[in-house]
């Protein structure tokens, strides 16, 4: 029973009118796994999470959460889930404390220790009405409500939205402790670098499909041959090299076909001010996967 995946999606698709928002998505999430869902706006992350909670009906495919079909038995699934919607959903006319109590009243149990910790971290004025909160405070309250509930599965749609860098770090600390408690978490985010540090597995969504593991591996391979260098004034690149990009600080980004060290050897020492080879920056990976575009695949993950 414990080996049964918490989430199982087989060729799940979702169509709104003429638009395929999700296309034949396959996914399996094991108990205790922390899955990071990466993708730009409109990639289908929120739709995927809504299908899991039964808020959306899939158009085709098979979907199981705790072995149950969300179309038929969404209530039982929601009893074991804590879902944070992508849009900040808090009642303006309630106080923060009333909203928390309201949100927790639907669930059998709440984790009071985690609630206290989050409340301290977020330093929310819970006695005040939510309408007096800033956008960031409302999001913190929504996150607090979602994470203070004791659940078997946490579906968090961009919990770091509208949070400043400090708050994101604090939220990360809480999520790390939940990961250590082997909570099953599916979290969608735009912040690739932070999610990469948190999640035990990342999946990349693009135009409703997961990007194949092989494509992600190719992109990483390409990044391993990427050179960033700064040349002295007046110095030129060897004729065989062509800069793919010139950065604001004057650095050049070069994607080498062969060994990047050969390129560096071709530049005289006096002309080379700084060089960095193969540093995998996540924003570069994001750029390769999403900005340059390629054929979508129906399955694949990055371990």
């Amino acid at each position: 029973m414990n080996d049964e995946p918490v989430l199982l999606l087989d060729a799940v698709g979702k169509r709104f009118g003429d638009v395929d928002v999700l296309r034949a998505v396959n996914l399996e999430v094991a108990r205790g796994e922390f899955l990071g869902l990466i993708g730009p706006n409109g990639a289908g992350k929120s739709t995927l999470l809504r299908i899991l909670t039964g808020l959306h009906q899939r158009t085709n495919g098979v979907c199981r959460v705790f072995g149950l079909d969300p179309t038929q038995r969404s209530l039982e699934i929601r009893q074991r889930c804590s879902y944070l919607p992508g849009e900040t959903s808090v009642y303006q006319e309630m106080t923060g404390a009333q909203f928390l109590q309201f949100a927790q009243s639907f669930h059998a149990a709440s984790d009071s220790a985690r609630e206290r910790r989050l409340a301290e971290l977020f330093a929310l004025p819970l006695h005040k009405r939510v309408r007096s909160y800033s956008a960031g405070m409302k999001q913190k309250l929504a996150v607090l409500a979602a994470l203070s509930v004791e659940a078997d599965l946490y579906l968090l749609d961009e919990p770091d939205r509208a949070l400043d860098a400090t708050m994101r770090m604090e939220l990360r600390a809480v999520l790390v402790s939940m990961r250590e408690q082997h909570k099953t978490i599916v979290l969608s985010s735009h912040h690739l670098e932070e999610l990469s540090a948190l999640a035990s597995r990342l999946v990349f969504l693009r135009k409703g499909s997961f990007i194949a593991a092989s494509e992600v591996a190719d992109a990483r391979q390409r990044l391993s041959r990427r050179v960033r260098l700064r040349l002295a004034d007046g110095a030129q690149l060897p004729p065989s090299a062509r800069a793919a990009q010139r950065l604001g600080d004057g650095s050049l980004v070069i994607d080498c076909d062969g060994d990047p060290r050969a390129l560096l050897r071709a530049i005289p020492d006096v002309a080379l001010l700084a060089a960095e080879v193969g540093a995998e920056r996540l924003e570069d990976l994001y750029g390769l996967l999403y900005l340059q575009g390629s054929t979508p695949h129906t399955e694949g993950t990055l371990a």
Binding site: R50, T53, L55, L75, R78, Q79, C81, Y83, P85, E87, T88, S89, V90, Y91, Q92, A103, F106, H107, A142
Partner: peptide, 13 residues
């Protein structure tokens, strides 16, 4: 006010 998604995703029919 985008609270309906919150409400309908609670464990209540």
């Amino acid at each position: 006010t985008q609270t309906l998604e919150f409400l309908l995703s609670r464990p209540v029919s």
